[in-house]
């Protein structure tokens, strides 16, 4: 095992993750600071936010598609499914109630 090489590649993972995360945070902040149209900002927020989420999981939390990480990945995906059901259901029901009450 080449320890020097491993150190460099681990370091690169963190630095690439940091650079991507900084960029993906800066873009929506800049869009708001420059008073871009609301619809444009919202799409930018969704896009950058989701990509940044993946960057953090991959580069900082070291979750990937390898077999060693399969347990962690399945746990995360199941939790995400629960979250989508609960948050989506809440927004659906409350949005519906809101429309009917107005």
């Amino acid at each position: 095992m080449n320890e020097k090489h491993d150190f460099a590649s681990d370091l690169r993972t963190y630095l690439v993750g940091f650079a991507l995360a900084a960029l993906l945070s800066a873009v929506p902040f800049a869009a708001v600071a420059l008073h871009r149209p609301r619809a444009q900002v919202l799409w930018l927020l969704i896009g950058c936010g989701l990509v940044q989420l993946l960057v953090h999981f991959r580069c900082f939390l070291h979750i990937d598609l390898s077999e060693q990480k399969r347990d962690d990945l399945q746990l995360i995906l199941f939790s995400v499914m629960i979250v989508v059901l609960m948050v989506g259901g809440t927004l659906w029901i409350m949005g519906n109630a809101h429309r009917h009450m107005m």
Binding site: S25, L45, G49
Partner: peptide, 16 residues
């Protein structure tokens, strides 16, 4: 990661 959600949903969405 949670903070990504907060600055997107709360701060940036609120200020745009």
């Amino acid at each position: 990661i949670v903070w990504i959600g907060i600055f997107s949903v709360v701060y940036l969405q609120g200020l745009t």
